[in-house]
Simulated assay, not measured.
Amino acid sequence: MQETLFCLRVGHRLPCSMSDSNTTNFTNPSTFILLGIPGLEAAHVWISIPFFAIYAAAILGNSTILFIVKREPRLHGPMYYFLCMLAVTDLVLSTSILPKTLSIFWFNSRETDFSSCLTQMYFIHCFSVLESGIFVAMALDRYVAICDPLRHSTILTNGVVAKIGLAVVLRGGMLALPFPFLARRWPYCTTNIIPQSYCEHIAVVKLACADIRISSYYGLFAIFSVIGLDVSFIAMSYTQILRAIFSLPTKDARLKTFGTCGSHLCVILVFYIPSLFSFLTHRFGHNVPLYFHVLMANMYLLVPPMLNPIIYGVRTKEIRGRLHQLFIHKGT
């Protein structure tokens, strides 16, 4: 009796012969299949509602920040330049995953070709590193503004801000570049099904039928060098900031400054904690339910782009005032 195997493709079982299975070795698959959120397929349409709402809020909020800063000359300073960099990063980061994720949820459009998958992988990792670097730059700006306010304009000149921005962009681009190159070099001979809603590096290379230790080690190096260095610098900056806050003469000034810094720290934690959890779960979290892991992997890419305009923008007096003026002008 001829033995028959079954190949999984887009949720269907297709028969294939044993001889076919022995000849399925290929260096680069033509397509990958993204499953969305495995285990919650029946709820995809319902899950898409908060996902779409978060994405719409992120687009609206970050676009508004860019529009206000561009229109208002008084906001052309270091803090707002970094805020604009963060807004652009958030727009690219959320747009790199949400349209495809929503197409999976709404239209069951799960296929993505190999090159598109690697491109998405690069953008996700590049702009995640960029976002972390911008948080560091903003922490530096807040440190100088609070701890040495008289020298803020002479320390963080436009030239210095441009150099910091260029360094952040170059670091993100260079650190993310090996991810798609490493993923491209492996042979894929078992399955092309990614149990995710987007092409994350380790989720892709886990499908390879080869020793992927180089990819795994580089991923660990990248995540711990970025998070380790950036979080350490942010922690040192905010430690000095908090010391300066508690030395302020009046209680109202302390509460106002502490409230702003506290909200900034909350956004930073929302970005770093889920991203570290997602990264480590891929490697060590074998007992974590897959659907929970995938949801967390989406949250750290979706929630910060929605929260950043609110925390860094609406709570900033100058942007809030300009936004109020725009609404008052339209209403008259």
Score class of each variant (00 low, 15 high):
Arg322Ser: 14
Lys256Asp: 11
Leu98Tyr: 02
Arg322Asn: 12
Thr64Asn: 04
Ser232Ile: 03
Cys261Arg: 10
Ala297Cys: 04
Pro289Gln: 10
Phe26Cys: 14
Ser115Leu: 13
Tyr300Val: 13
Ile65Glu: 09
Thr332Glu: 03
Ala235Cys: 07
Asp20His: 12
Gln196Thr: 08
Ile134Ala: 13
Asp252Leu: 04
Tyr300Ser: 03
Thr332His: 15
Tyr300Trp: 15
Asp113Cys: 09
His125Lys: 05
Leu255Met: 13
Val205Asn: 00
Gly313Cys: 02
Thr316Tyr: 09
Gly77Tyr: 00
Val288Ile: 13
Met296Phe: 10
Asp148Gln: 14
Leu280Pro: 01
Leu40His: 09
Glu41Val: 02
Ala297Asp: 04
Thr190Gln: 08
Glu3Thr: 13
Glu200Arg: 05
Leu290Gln: 13
His282Gln: 08
Ala253Gly: 03
Ala167Thr: 03
Ala139Ile: 06
Val88Tyr: 14
Glu131Val: 04
Thr27Asp: 04
Ala56Thr: 15
Phe105Ala: 11
Ala183Ser: 14
His264Phe: 15
Met299Gln: 10
His152Val: 00
Ile146Ala: 03
Gly133Asp: 07
Ala183Asp: 04
Ser247Asp: 10
Ser197Asp: 05
Met236Pro: 00
Pro304Lys: 12
Asp90Tyr: 02
Met138Ile: 15
Thr191Ile: 05
Gly133Pro: 11
Gly77Gln: 10
Thr95Gln: 04
Gly39Tyr: 00
Leu14Tyr: 05
Phe292Val: 14
Pro15Ile: 06
Pro187Tyr: 12
Tyr55Ala: 04
Phe51Glu: 09
Arg171Leu: 14
Val161Glu: 05
Phe271Lys: 11
Ser109Thr: 10
Phe114Pro: 01
Leu140Lys: 06
Ser109Gln: 11
Tyr80Asn: 14
Thr157His: 12
Pro29Phe: 09
Arg283Trp: 01
Pro149Arg: 06
Ile241Glu: 06
Thr250Lys: 12
Leu182Ser: 06
